[in-house]
């Protein structure tokens, strides 16, 4: 177990290292750099050269990558080209807001998804399954900005129940985001619930038709006893990995939702930074999101192994 843990951890670190290389190379390939962003129209000749020397941008890319990477490991993400503040604090505020958004969605979505997944799995091909599974397809495939627009129209403009836009600034206390956070949470919960529910459903169907469940049923074990004692502990295992994928998606893919509702989170900040060519910030956010994705998936793998001893000996490849 410890050996597998170390192996997975090293693979995860390798993945993050490759990501950091990709991010650095991609940002390096963009036209312009921090100095053209700072100086804007004055970016030419002597001043540009001076600025680059001051910020160390005239050194070779490999040196700068090493410096950036080691800084990031220590928690120093550099300076924003846009307003000269340390990125760690700028990103920290937004990360906190995104975590609030993601946390609310997960707290609402995971229990709902597990319940609906088990329900539809047990009632396979009955009316309730067909109806819920079809709604799930709608929920997970209609673009977030469409759902958001419809929800804003219905609940904010038409009924006037909740604000359609978040007006709090990035550094506001968390309480300032209520009730504006309600609609973004609903949009995210819908997508997430649909994904997790479908996995749980197919896994419940798998397990319920397996030999040992049939055996228990033939022995005369009561139905609900089979469901809760025999089937669900196995059927819910795949949910761990899907939830991890969803958390990774929540931390990065909420970009559109945050932008639509003007929610001051990490994704919104990422779009603004790309528009402003604030490259150090883009690099930092990309690295944080990728590390979170890898970390959450690693945790899910380990959790799945802890619950399922078979995975420990099978030398299962990373999913």
């Amino acid at each position: 177990m410890l050996r597998i843990f170390i192996h997975r951890l090293l693979l995860g670190i390798a993945t993050v290292a490759i990501v950091s290389g990709i991010i650095f190379a991609a940002v390096e390939a963009l036209p312009g750099d921090a100095c053209t962003a700072i100086l804007q129209r004055d970016a030419s000749g002597e001043r540009l050269a001076n600025c680059r020397r001051e910020l160390g941008l005239d050194r070779p890319a490999a040196t700068r990558y090493a410096e950036w990477a080691f800084g990031a490991v220590r928690g120093d993400l550099g300076i924003s080209a846009h307003n000269n503040k340390p990125i760690a604090s700028l990103v920290g505020d937004r990360l906190k807001n995104t975590l609030l958004l993601a946390g609310c969605s997960l707290a609402l979505g995971i229990p709902l998804a597990l319940f609906l997944g088990v329900l539809t799995g047990l009632r396979r091909d009955k009316f309730s399954d067909l109806a819920l599974s079809t709604i799930a397809i709608f929920a997970m495939t209609i673009p977030e900005f469409v759902t958001a627009t419809v929800l804003i129209f219905v609940f904010s403009i038409w009924l006037g129940w909740v604000p359609g836009i978040v007006t709090a600034s990035a550094s506001s206390p968390l309480s300032a985001f209520f009730p504006g956070i309600v609609l973004p949470v609903i949009v995210l919960t819908m997508v997430m619930t649909a994904h997790i529910m479908r996995t749980v459903r197919s896994s419940v169907i798998d397990v319920m038709s397996s030999d040992y469940v049939q055996m228990a049923s033939l022995k005369g074990v009561p139905y609900w006893h089979i469901v809760f004692r025999h089937a669900l502990p196995n059927a819910l295992l795949p949910a761990i990995n899907v939830i991890a994928l969803t958390v990774g998606w929540l931390l990065g893919g909420v970009v559109v939702v945050e932008k639509v509702f003007n929610y001051p989170g990490l994704g919104h900040y990422m779009i603004d930074s790309i528009s402003d060519r604030d490259l150090p910030v883009v690099q930092a956010i990309a690295l944080i999101v990728a590390a979170a994705y890898v970390g959450v998936n690693l945790a899910a793998d380990l959790l799945a192994m802890a619950f399922n001893p078979r995975l420990r000996t099978l030398k299962a490849r990373s999913p």
Binding site: T15, W249, G252, G253
Partner: peptide, 12 residues
């Protein structure tokens, strides 16, 4: 490398 690409959000 595939894992690394998948760790980045599509929109980025």
């Amino acid at each position: 490398v595939v894992d690394a690409f998948l760790a980045l959000p599509w929109i980025l």
